[in-house]
Amino acid sequence: MIIKQISVFLEDKSGRLTQITKILAQHDINITALSIADATDYGIIRMIVGRPELAQKVLKEQGIAVQLTEVACMVIPNKPGGLHAALQILTDHNINIDYLYAFADGNKASVVIRSASITEAISVLQKNKMKLLQTSDVYQI
């Protein structure tokens, strides 16, 4: 149930994000989800992509700082209280979230969660019948 997310460090310079999307496009790598965390003079792009290992390799070859991080992708109903129910489970088990990003599509929403204790997070979410995406669901979409 662990999904590999790729994280890229970028200096705050114009054209840097375009450079990343260009490399991924050239290698026929699809981006399923993306979020950017920005600090004063740099940012970190986090992406769920098809073929993350290939993405890591090709970006690294271009001298880009890239890292694979383990995250969970959860599917929740797109309705009031949907996210809250999921988060309450984690809180009840004392699991801290480092970051998350989410998007809704139709009657469902997908949430990417990163926690220092990701394996534990996945197991309690599963025990509580939360729907988690598997590798095959997200890769090569």
Binding site: Q5, F9, A39, R46, Q67, T69, Y99, R114
Partner: peptide, 14 residues
């Protein structure tokens, strides 16, 4: 930043 200390979390880098 040395490769072994790379983090995708801003708080670590900060």
């Amino acid at each position: 930043i040395a490769e072994a200390y790379w983090s995708d979390e801003i708080k670590d880098l900060e």
